[in-house]
Amino acid sequence: MSHSRQSAKKAGEVCVRGRPREFDTDTVLTHASQQFWDHGYHATSIDDLCKATGVLRGSLYGVFGDKHGIMLAALDHYAQGAVARLAQRLSATAEPQQALRDALLHYARVSCALSGRRSCFITNTTLEMQPDDEQLRERVASIQRRMATLLAAAVIRGQASGAFDSTLDEQAVGDFLLCVMQGLRVMGRVAHTEDALTGIVDVAMRALT
């Protein structure tokens, strides 16, 4: 669990303005991330978050500080699940090459299913992020590093099995595959077909052999 989520969870376990906690932190962050995901950070107001979560403004402020704090905690909450799901797909019992291809194809399918504004919460946040928002930049960079590390580990497994070129630098390839994943997300926003995105995945896989 990230430091911010630990802090939010701890805050949620104490009294807010002398009253017992009235909400489950994880549930609130799930609803908050959905609101930010659907509408973006700047278009989401505190009133929107109160309505989405069913929690009063004072209680939200008491746990998360302000709207920016809610956004950071919501992104951490969402990213924890997203990174865990990627790790699970990459560690599947299939051969390393197939497991990696299936993981990338998942993003192709999801990108088409979520075409339009909604896309991916992490990708949307990255695209909307302001250059002077250092806290959010660090959060996004941390999420990207975790994903790239998982992808690099998948490349190493593929190299060990003989499926991938052993001379490739696994860290550079991990970054490359992260770019492919993010690119699939962005292209899915403009209604590319699943076949077209699958073709991109196949080109990426050929680059590893």
Rank of each mutant, 00 (worst) to 15 (best):
R57D: 13
H192P: 00
G183R: 02
F121E: 00
D24A: 12
H3F: 05
F36R: 02
A191N: 12
G40A: 07
G40M: 08
T44V: 08
T53P: 07
S2Q: 04
L90V: 08
D175N: 11
R117F: 07
C179P: 00
Q98V: 14
V180P: 03
G69N: 05
A74G: 06
I46K: 02
R19V: 10
L29A: 12
L100W: 05
D132V: 03
I122D: 00
A84L: 10
E134D: 14
M129N: 02
A204P: 02
L72V: 11
Q34L: 11
L86W: 07
A172C: 05
D48K: 02
Q6D: 11
A92Q: 07
D195A: 13
C179T: 08
P20G: 04
V16Y: 05
Q6S: 10
Q80P: 00
D47W: 01
R89I: 02
A8H: 06
H77F: 12
R117L: 03
Q98S: 10
V190E: 06
A103Q: 09
A8G: 14
V63P: 02
H31Q: 14
G116A: 05
A73R: 03
R185A: 09
D132A: 08
S166K: 12
E22V: 11
G65I: 08
S166G: 00
S119F: 02
D202G: 01
K10D: 14
G58E: 14
S4M: 05
H192M: 12
R85C: 03
S111A: 15
R17L: 13
L75G: 07
L114M: 13
T44K: 10
L197D: 03
G40V: 04
T149C: 03
L60T: 10
C179E: 01
Q6W: 07
V186L: 12
K9P: 00
S59H: 15
L197R: 02
D169K: 04
H106Q: 08
V55D: 07
R137K: 11
G54N: 09
C179D: 06
A160G: 15
A108P: 09
Q98P: 00
A196I: 02
S161C: 12
T30S: 11
L168H: 09
E134S: 12
I46N: 06
T27S: 09
D102W: 05
I70Y: 04
V63G: 04
M205A: 02
G54D: 09
T93M: 10
C120P: 01
V110L: 13
I143G: 01
E170A: 15
G18Q: 03
F176T: 04
T125V: 06
G116K: 06
A92S: 15
L86Y: 01
D48E: 07
D66G: 08
E194T: 06
S115N: 09
R145M: 05
R206S: 11
E138M: 11
M181P: 00
I46H: 00
A103H: 08
D26A: 15
A52G: 10
T25Y: 03
A82Q: 10
A82F: 08
L86E: 06
M187R: 11
G54H: 10
L105W: 05
H106Y: 15
G158I: 01
L184K: 03
A99E: 08
L177C: 04
A153C: 04
V83C: 06
V190Y: 11
L104G: 09
M181Q: 09
L75Q: 09
G162E: 06
R85E: 15
R109G: 10
T167A: 13
Q88R: 14
A73P: 03
Y61D: 12
G199Y: 03
C15I: 01
H39L: 04
L151A: 05
E138R: 15
Q34W: 11
